[in-house]
Design a protein around this nucleic acid. Structure first.
Length: 195
DNA sequence: ACGAAGATCTTCT
DNA sequence: GAAGATCTTCGTT
């Protein structure tokens, strides 16, 4: 079911991500994502077809996992198209489901475990050297049905202040009323914004 | 071989 | 709200 990346980003909200690392299982429901659209998107790693060893995975087929590191943190993307369109969705926030104690142990704290792209990978034990280039549902990381958002909120992407007009694109999608998102301080809605 | 940049996080005021 | 920590990749000498 390959389709356009913005649609895929919206549909990822509420899906359940499960990671099995070193025999320990953690999972969570997706609360926050951002779309990156390759050629025409100045904020994307694959802008204008830029292709390096680092972002090579963006040119893989739908369902691939692209993990990059920056400032000593790991960030996870799901690839949405194919080599002709290097596009993907960055997973920025999760609502913890299983493995809460494992997440706390890995993070060394008891709160704010998965409300940011670098935090959720650390909580789940996801690392570039272990998981970059794997495919969903064929290895340590699986995607399955989860919850449905009541309302999807659009906003500007985070952390790309120097990308000129790309900073204004509304390519960030969050579950309205869910507190497990980065930056925003949200008042929890009924049922954390799920249907 | 070197330097700069980066889709971040934590801690401090 | 601001700044420092931290580290890998890439482009240039």
């Amino acid at each position: 079911m390959a389709q356009d990346t913005l649609t895929a980003a919206r549909q990822l909200l509420g899906k359940k991500v499960t990671a099995t690392v070193e025999g320990e299982v953690t999972s969570g429901y997706i609360t926050e994502v951002e779309a990156y659209l390759g050629f025409e998107d100045k904020a994307a790693h694959a802008y204008q077809g830029r292709r390096t060893k680092k972002n090579e995975m963006m040119y893989r087929d739908y369902g691939g996992i692209y993990i990059y590191t920056m400032h000593g943190h790991h960030c996870m993307n799901f690839i949405t198209r194919d080599a002709a369109s290097p596009e993907g969705v960055l997973i920025r926030g999760l609502e913890p489901a299983e493995g809460f104690e494992i997440m706390q142990k890995r993070r060394g704290r008891t709160d704010h475990l998965t409300d940011g792209p670098g935090k959720l990978t650390k909580s789940m034990g996801i690392r570039r050297d272990l998981h970059n280039g794997l495919r969903l549902n064929e290895g340590a990381i699986t995607l399955s049905e989860g919850k449905k958002p009541e309302v999807i909120k659009e906003s500007k992407r985070i952390g790309i202040d120097n990308k000129e007009e790309a900073v204004d694109y509304l390519y960030r999608f969050t579950v309205a009323g869910n507190p497990h998102v980065s930056k925003d301080r949200v008042k929890p809605a009924f049922n954390n914004g799920w249907q």
